[in-house]
Simulated assay, not measured.
Amino acid sequence: MGPTGISERERRRCEPVPAKRHLGGNKLHDKCADRIPNNSFPGRDVFVNGKNFDALQLATRTLWEVKTDNFDTYPPDLREIVIESQVEKLRHERALALACGFDFRIGVRSPAHKEALEFAARDLNGLIVVMDWC
């Protein structure tokens, strides 16, 4: 154990490690992540606590996940399926970030997507940002 009471293994697990590039290969998604204001590692994901996050604002210790769905064009049934799936994953990702002392934000492309996520998961309110740079 180190002087702060956490093991070396735990410290390494929470240390942000920039990836060589973005994973996934979606150009729009990558562009949106790269343009997050004050992104410390544009062009790359950041590995923290077993997960590649889309961006990191190191100055504010904030990890980001970006959703670039064309949500507004989806029929109601598909919107419901997408939101249900995203909420579960976003809660998990937020828990990983918080466990390592990072804040967490979610970037979406439309106010309708933001509203649907906030309605489905009130615990995510205040964390979702409409990416007007995307």
Rank of each mutant, 00 (worst) to 15 (best):
A59T: 15
G50A: 07
A59R: 15
R94D: 03
L23F: 14
I83Y: 04
A99Q: 13
V66W: 00
F102P: 03
C100Y: 03
D123W: 06
R21L: 08
G126T: 04
V66I: 14
M131G: 00
D103H: 13
M131I: 03
I83G: 00
L127K: 06
R44I: 09
D103I: 00
D123L: 08
R91A: 02
P3E: 14
D103S: 12
L124C: 07
H29L: 07
G107M: 03
R12L: 14
T73H: 05
D103G: 11
K114C: 06
Y74H: 03
D45Y: 01
F47H: 09
W133L: 02
N125G: 06
R91M: 13
T62K: 00
D45P: 08
G50M: 05
R109Y: 04
V82D: 06
D72E: 13
R109D: 01
G5R: 12
L117K: 04
D30N: 15
G101Y: 05
K51R: 13
V129D: 03
Q57G: 01
K89R: 14
V87N: 10
L78F: 00
M131H: 04
N26R: 08
L98P: 04
E15P: 01
E93T: 02
S7G: 08
P42H: 02
V129W: 04
V82K: 11
A112L: 10
R122N: 13
L56W: 01
D132H: 14
D54L: 07
R105S: 08
L23N: 13
T4I: 10
E93Y: 09
V130D: 01
A116M: 07
H22I: 10
T68K: 00
K51M: 11
N49D: 03
R13Y: 12
S40C: 07
G24T: 11
M1N: 13
E10W: 06
G24Q: 09
T62Q: 06
G43D: 08
A59M: 14
V130E: 02
V82C: 06
W64A: 09
L58T: 07
G24A: 05
T60E: 15
